[in-house]
């Protein structure tokens, strides 16, 4: 495929580009530019970017198949890890900066607040995916690797529930995210019934 090798060479850019929102929000935070309630702003922005990266991760396969650009699949792991990075920081900022690592405040939240529970569950589902994202795990798990990584579907649904649940009256963002995810899931379900159309599996050892 023409240009394929060239584009692959730019794959490392996912990290410097993907971490720009993090750098911006941290920089704004230290400059007092996140408004009068910076911790809450930080927590919600980290969660937002985490969800965006998760949706992008989910979109990689459809994009690769539809555009017949198999090399795109190589981006999926780093996008997924980027999402996990943001969502982990989201969780850390919530527990550490907002609630000060105090079990007496964190505990009740985890038990009594459904939107916290679903968010936490989503992160817990993503944890094994991040841990097994390396090549060795993939080889070791074999066919089960793919099955395990289907956990991204429940995780993203829980993430969407978390996003819906925190809204007070304006549902435009969760509606938008949900429509995109619904489209990706529908594509995926229909794809599942057809023979594999991915043009060329990215080789495990390039």
């Amino acid at each position: 495929m023409p240009g394929r090798g060239g584009l692959l060479r730019w794959m490392w850019l996912i990290w410097p580009v993907g971490l720009v929102p993090l750098v911006v929000v941290l920089w704004q935070g230290t400059r007092g530019a996140l408004g009068p309630d910076p911790v809450l702003t930080l927590v919600s922005r980290l969660g937002w970017w985490g969800l965006v990266a998760l949706v992008l991760t989910l979109a990689v396969r459809p994009l690769a198949v539809v555009s017949r650009q198999g090399w795109l699949m190589r981006w999926r792991r780093d996008l997924g890890l980027l999402a996990f990075t943001y969502l982990s920081l989201h969780l850390l900022a919530w527990a550490g900066l907002l609630l000060g690592w105090q079990p007496r405040y964190i505990g009740p939240e985890l038990v009594e607040r459904p939107y916290i529970v679903v968010g936490m569950l989503a992160w817990l589902l993503l944890l094994p995916l991040a841990l097994t994202s390396n090549r060795r795990s993939r080889r070791w798990l074999g066919r089960r690797w793919g099955q395990l990584h289907r956990l991204i579907f429940p995780a993203i649904l829980l993430g969407l529930a978390h996003q819906w649940w925190i809204q007070k009256s304006d549902y435009s963002e969760p509606v938008l995210f949900s429509l995109v995810v619904a489209a990706l899931l529908i594509w995926r379900l229909r794809q599942g019934r057809r023979p594999q159309r991915l043009p060329k599996k990215p080789s495990a050892n390039p």
Binding site: T30, P38, V39
Partner: peptide, 11 residues
């Protein structure tokens, strides 16, 4: 409640 303004390291 968080009494505003808060800071990044003190909610």
């Amino acid at each position: 409640e968080r009494r505003l303004p808060t800071s990044l390291f003190n909610p």
